[in-house]
Write a protein that binds this DNA or RNA. Structure first.
Lengths: 248, 248
DNA sequence: CGGAACATTGACGATAATCAAAGCGAGTGG
DNA sequence: CCACTCGCTTTGATTATCGTCAATGTTCCG
């Protein structure tokens, strides 16, 4: 049941889930993976790619000096290792953050589905475009926002992405990133993360304890983050997207 | 003649150019665009997407405080506005950096080509994956490298990408980014860029004057940048990729 | 109970930002 | 042909955000 992936594809391509549900048939097996497990590309069947059904994972790079930078948070519904990348720009690894349920989608069957149903190919391209947009936002985040804004933006982004998959999601959510993880996501140090988190707690923005995050003041958080929750999407206007209830 | 784009697609998907050349037929018109021109998405025919044939462009975001972050350098062979992105993660603009020659590829014809030739669809997915890899590298760059390393890495990356399109490319190249542009690419201030550039010149790493960049010591530059020019690509092993002559 | 992973605190240092001014260089117009 | 201007680069002085190092608390889990 790659349900979550279907939802993401539909969201990314602005199609209806039933137009994309063909993916579901290509889902071959599902496995449980413990937290902090290294997911090797080689280990997986090269003829399939993994989709997160539940839990969090992350793709990252390690620099020569040992520093780690997480490049992408993989939330329920996200797929990875979609296509191998050749040349010097490759080199990403993937690890689980929390325990995960991971499905494997058959590449050959997916290819057949894309050949038969144009909507499936379109959905996959839309998904890739969404990944791109998220990454571009991340560059902006890390490049031009200070520590407080970065953390706020990350929280808004994660909340938004989770709420697409789970429309019932309220202001409290599972948030398995340690402060060390946060540092590696945001390009900061754990110590600095700690201090800014405390500041955010003092200002009544969030609550974060034992992997439970509560957004206490979403309006202000989004304002600090510069996160356009009310973003008006011209092409999607009128379309019934699962717009989350994160409006002020 | 969207030649450059064909080369990039082939490189990204590890296919041969002749397998992808069908794209060429979908190229409808070509136009000249002056430097520092804003390229609006609405202005372009929604049924086509632009490809840079010559010159440099960039996609960027502007923050509320007026800061600009360039998220992607668009070099010859790069396409943009491939797919619209819905939701709060969108919001990218594109501008030219130098004067550009831009081709427009017909989306409907491309869709037909993808339906008829699986290799074309594969190439497009490979291209999207490459974009992703570049963006992920950028996140690493901005998140975990200091100013000197960032500049060095940018130069290595640009040189690599240009050399894929132009195998004849030597150590001197057209480099139209001003120091202000560089700052917006790398998430720094122009003043700081200036100082680090001088340092690099003093150390005999590069020469940069009137938009001409020369890499004087590629080995050391790549070493500082942590740029794996000798990256061994397992899946591409044996494949005759246009590997640039940037080895030490 | 004990240990490991995670969070918190403090003192200090360094990289990069900010502010402001001056220099340079290419193209323009008188 | 020479001043003039505009965009870009360079420089200096000062500030601040964030990093580093190191120690102490705390929570969770077997």
């Amino acid at each position: 049941m790659s349900n979550t992936f279907v939802v993401r594809l539909a969201q990314a391509s602005n199609l209806q889930p039933y137009e994309v549900i063909a993916i579901d048939g290509a889902c071959r097996q599902t496995r449980q993976v413990a937290a902090k497990t290294y997911l090797s590309r080689a280990g997986d069947d090269a003829q399939s790619f993994p989709v997160i059904l539940a839990g969090w994972a992350a793709s990252y790079q390690i620099l020569r000096n040992g520093a780690r930078q997480i490049t992408r948070l993989l939330l329920p519904g996200d797929a990875f290792y979609l296509e191998p990348v050749h040349g010097p720009m490759g080199g990403e690894e993937v690890t689980t953050i929390s325990a995960c349920t991971i499905a494997h989608v058959s590449q050959p069957e997916l290819r057949s589905a894309m050949a038969a149903l144009p909507a499936v190919g379109e959905a996959m391209r839309g998904y890739a475009a969404m990944e791109n947009a998220i990454l571009a936002n991340w560059v902006v985040n890390v490049g031009r926002r200070d520590a407080l804004e970065r953390i706020a933006h990350l929280i808004c982004e994660v909340h938004y992405r989770l709420s697409v998959i789970d429309p019932e999601l309220g202001s409290t959510m599972f948030f398995p990133l340690t402060q060390d993880d946060l540092a590696d996501v945001l390009g900061l140090t754990p110590v600095h993360i700690n201090r800014k988190l405390q500041q955010m707690r003092q200002e009544g923005l969030i609550t974060l304890k034992s992997r439970q995050l509560t957004i206490c003041n979403h309006a202000r958080l989004a304002q600090i983050a510069g996160f356009d929750s009310l973003y008006l999407c011209p092409r999607a206007a009128g379309a019934q997207m699962p717009m989350p209830a994160i409006a002020a």
